[in-house]
């Protein structure tokens, strides 16, 4: 290894009231794509929120791109280059598509409104629509676009394929793969194991607030036993994400 990873999490602890959600997470994310798998309620979303500084942590450290961001504000982390695409997309319901993007616009940014509209033609067509007038797929495109306009070094996506039609799921996967090949670090939290396999070079498995495995995607894909043990699923059994919820 030698070189420092882009994101380095050590012994991360998070409590919600009396419940202990993250039990000392250790995780490195570099400029590749990492899929984060695990059943519901294992702490994946909490981990994303902790990376963004949106939940108070009770122990451990987070380093990003040479900075100790353990106690940084969310806005500082975003400006250092962590793009966050949250679960449920969380687009602003009273802003139009164009306002979402105009708000994020900065001088000298690689991702401009024009580039977003070239990449997501659908968003250009719907640029005058409000956030809550968009379909799930369009909201997802918008949530990813506004994160990209920060020119992030690391993109944290929390279940981006949740509730999307299969055709849109593959669009999202293609985009993630393309961003990854352009050198952006990707952390992709997924319930949809096939989406994670298709999009990520490595996968980590989270069980009860701990990362229990981190291995190349191909290895997990070939290890049915491991999939069953940690993810509790028969491969091929899942056709839609509803089956997992």
């Amino acid at each position: 290894m030698g070189i420092e990873p882009l994101l380095s999490i050590r012994d991360l602890q998070v409590h919600y009231g009396t419940s202990h959600v993250l039990h000392g997470v250790n995780l490195d994310v570099d400029q590749t794509s990492l899929g984060m798998l695990g059943r519901n309620g294992m702490g994946k979303t909490t981990l994303c929120a902790a990376i963004m500084g949106l939940v108070p942590i009770s122990g451990g450290s987070i380093h990003f791109d040479g900075h100790d961001i353990t106690s940084s504000t969310p806005e500082k982390r975003a400006r250092l280059g962590i793009g966050y695409v949250p679960q449920g997309r969380r687009v602003f319901r009273s802003l139009t598509v164009e306002e979402h993007l105009r708000m994020m616009q900065r001088k000298g940014s690689e991702w401009t409104i024009e580039r977003v509209f070239d990449t997501f033609v659908r968003l250009k067509e719907r640029r005058r629509n409000l956030g809550d007038q968009l379909s799930g797929g369009e909201q997802q495109m918008l949530a990813i676009s506004r994160a990209l306009m920060l020119d992030p070094k690391l993109l944290v996506l929390d279940e981006p394929t949740e509730g999307l039609a299969p055709a849109i799921v593959s669009d999202v996967i293609d985009l993630v793969v393309r961003l990854s090949t352009e050198g952006m670090g990707i952390m992709l939290v997924e319930q949809n194991i096939h989406a994670a396999f298709a999009a990520a070079q490595n996968v980590a498995i989270m069980v009860n607030g701990l990362i229990v495995e981190k291995l190349p995607t191909a290895v997990l894909e070939g290890d049915i036993e491991l999939q069953k043990r940690h993810l509790g699923i028969e491969p091929g059994q899942i056709t839609a994400e509803e089956d997992l919820v």
Binding site: M52, P74, R77, A78, P86, F92, S94
Partner: peptide
């Protein structure tokens, strides 16, 4: 945007 989702605004 802040009225809609203050936390998300910070995360951006």
């Amino acid at each position: 945007a802040g009225v809609d989702d203050r936390e998300m605004l910070r995360a951006l």
